[in-house]
Design a protein around this nucleic acid. Sequence first.
DNA 1: CATTATCTGGGAATGAGTCTCATTCCCGTT
DNA 2: AACGGGAATGAGACTCATTCCCAGATAATG
Lengths: 144, 144
Amino acid sequence: MAASDWSEHVHAVLSEAGLKRGGARERVIELLAREPCALSAVEIEDELRARGRPTGRASVYRVLELLAEHGLVERVAVGDGQTRFERSQPGGDHHHHLVCEQCGRLVAFDDPGLEHAIDRLSERLGVTIDSHDVLLRGACRSCG
Amino acid sequence: MAASDWSEHVHAVLSEAGLKRGGARERVIELLAREPCALSAVEIEDELRARGRPTGRASVYRVLELLAEHGLVERVAVGDGQTRFERSQPGGDHHHHLVCEQCGRLVAFDDPGLEHAIDRLSERLGVTIDSHDVLLRGACRSCG
DNA sequence: CATTATCTGGGAATGAGTCTCATTCCCGTT
DNA sequence: AACGGGAATGAGACTCATTCCCAGATAATG
């Protein structure tokens, strides 16, 4: 899904939900569309200000919350005390992350074996799993 | 590993590292030894005060940091804005958690299949994995 | 028991995230 | 094009976990 497709998809979903448009929303969506890397609310606020489009903190958090509610972004926790957000893949596809302890870079990956193991786990434990997160810590290929 | 064994192990490791003893340290260690469930620093501070052994906030955080550095406790992030800590198992054994979205309870589990999937992943991606976290969100057996 | 490095705790500082509320904006209706 | 009401926005106060600072207490050692 290209950035522009994602952004169109977002607008379609939000309009479908009967929501109006607004400057702050457009700006945050546009930024997320162009920067697929996981961004924190603070980074988004700073980046928008740096681009000469200052946007209220409350609005940034509101937009992120709204997008998350509609499954349009995913929260990514990498263990620094901040919540990061990145646009989610279509069709329920999702990936996880490796945090490189040397360079701090975030490496995305997906793995059917891992997903399968989690599915089986759900049955074994007799619980319902709505969602899951996996975070690896280590050295990325360049640093390892 | 029984609680008392863990507590002895902790004292052995810290003494080996040439550290002195102190009241705050003893109190936090004792509490963690008896309550294997993942506790946050705030909960620890409150619980100690409730037991009539008030302990400075800074000391609680310092002890937890110290124990974590020596691999004696593990940080558990469940996505509320707090870091939780629980005594770590011997021999590198470890488990993961399911957060019940209904009752908020934390359910611990382990799964060789999951660990295996992560091991293979390391090879497939060509990266070194030092540690990993898995967090499931869903409904526990009583709520599901 | 003197010495000294370590430990402790009160409180101020920090920083992410939340809340409030007055103002502004969008958009269907007139 | 003007209107009206609900939605969206933003400034800043606020919460709350965590960190920092520093002066005073304490444990181990000789």
